[in-house]
Nucleic acid binder design. Sequence first.
RNA 1: GCCGGGAUAGCUCAGCUGGUUAGAGCGUCGGAAUCAUAAUCCGUAGGUCGGGGGUUCAAGUCCCUCUCCCGGUACCA
Length: 675
Amino acid sequence: MQNNQRYLVTAALPYANNHLHIGHIAGAYLPPDIYVRYMRMKGEDVIFICGSDEHGTAIEMAAIQEGIQPREIIDRYHFSNKKAFEDLRIDFDIYSRTSNEVHHKTAQEFFLNLHEKGILFTKSEKQLYSEKEKRFLADRFVTGTCPNCGYENARGDECENCGSNLSPLELINPRSKITGDTPVVKESTHFHFPLDKYQEKLEEWLKSKNGWKQNVMNYIKGWMKTGLKERAITRDLEWGVKVPLEGYDGKVLYVWFDAPIGYISATKELFELRGDADGWKRYWLDNDTKLIHFIGKDNIVFHTIIFPAMLMAHGGFILPENVPANEFLNIGGQKQSKSRGTGILVKDIVAKFSADSVRYALAASLPENRDSEFSWEDLQARNNNELAAILGNFVNRTVVFAKNKFGNKIADRTESTPESEDLFRYVSSQAELTGKLIEEFRIKDALSEAMNVARAANKYFNDTEPWKLIKTDKEKCGSIINDCLRVCFSLAVIFRPFIPGASDKILGILGIDTASITWKDASNPAIPAGAELGENMILFPLIEDEEIKPAEKQKEEVTSSAEDKTEDGLITIDDFRKVQFKVAEVLECEKVENSRKLLKLRLKVGDKEKQIVSGISEYYKPEELIGRLIIVVDNLKPSKLMGIESHGMLLAAKSGKELKLVTVDGNIAPGAEVN
RNA sequence: GCCGGGAUAGCUCAGCUGGUUAGAGCGUCGGAAUCAUAAUCCGUAGGUCGGGGGUUCAAGUCCCUCUCCCGGUACCA
């Protein structure tokens, strides 16, 4: 057989600033794992590549906020996510990371290749620069007042309040999110990639692609219609792949440029580990290789437009054969979101349920055509009503029967019946159908067809009634049980891509070596009559209601606590409303004796008076404050400072050694609400 | 605002270029069976395919419009 075909399968590189949730798994990792397992059993030459995407602003910012090095952030999530994949038995040939030396080198070479060809061009742009930190501030590092609605904490890229898109330069009174200082406008020069020049070539290439999913094509059309635009491929940032040219200190490759190159670097690394340093070329530079990117829909542009354009520009590389992007998996109608901290994390779900159960439940509701829903009840129902009741039960009833009636040995098959032949014809055609569906990336349908085999198997058991036959015709009964055991083998093969754990167990019971299993075994399940069966076991323990309920509660807790403290420090309007700010007039003010910086203030808030203690005597003298209107938090839980009760706190802005009271712009009655 | 996507049985979803009584799984209800993790098998009920209008011999499927949800993207004060 002269099949030179090779497959290079990639799964989106997870960004190493958060833990993976099951939406990621359903979108971009479980489908390729199933696909790859199947293709391997079919005897195809496949490599399966993934790794952590570890550069970019968000990681640098997270590090600054936590006061640690980016390295610590990426290590935390790289290893956590690597383990999450292992726990779910998602078996990459390599799970690499873009902080690796081989990646930096590969990305730099790629950049230089384009640069030397004169494809890239430079352009200078005005950007905000922090003198204090000696660095340019990325959009997300800046906050300020929105020029449209006046919201004071608008982000550099958009205003959360009115939804307008902003550039940091538009912000009124911009501040660094890190130090709070005011940045200045400064020119910065960046390399750009002329994506617009590749539009025609891309469109032509895409035209030749049939069999791509409709949703993917729709996204592409949208982008093409608006017209592609040049894109900056460098940034002013510390954390990333350095621009490998003189005079570009402090600049790194933009993360979207370096990340997809990670697929190439990871492949290089894989073959280095295999002692075949040039092996990666067979996969990336050879037209006999089919490159398949599994991703979520948020990544479609990068994998169908930007990265292919980069590969075209570089030359020599193959372009993707298909990009079967999935939609999103929601939970209770709610989007799972890293940045909002909602969603069910892999590490939490595998702590509680088996990889097989989770894989099955997710595979059964993959968001292949549109966003889909996942719930804990779903997981329970899938496990109990399908895995346990249909598949698990069939294997169990067969094995138990063989054990009780045939001395735990594989009975002889002495005769064949039309029913038996029908059954195996069906098994064989279902195996073919399941495989075909997997190859078409219709994993959900494939799984459903696989389960139909187990249904047919149960029906065969029911219809042939071996429990009756054993009393009248043990030989014929033995043939039936032999059939059933062989179907168990077929089931182990057909289900193997989806639930490898259970497949191993079934094959273990049957005493079959798992190493040499091929897809063809599903149609030709050969088991040695007379051989002793291994120890039976329950493949899928039932999931009780109690196991689901705490999980639900847990989920709610996660969600609600996440609302209070989200990744980028955002709160909801409801959170804000909890705090009652009021205008207060300072009636009396005196220094607290023996304290270094405490002042005791007597305030008039509406028609009541209250006392607060505040640590501002280093900045304000008591007499300066009397008569002034200030802003206080009115509903703060009272506390004692140096034995003196304080019933609130005043607001003041602090920067370095400066502190200024927050006041109101003009006269207003004390007690007025601030919002 | 503009562009795109979605709205199909109680639930989760399939329905390609328009064509017989709109499908599957789960759940419901009834029956058979009792080897098996009270697990199986057979059957039943259940939908004016988001609302309205149109094209057609024929529309869930095409066109228009409206409502709601989700993405993307532009701008005004």
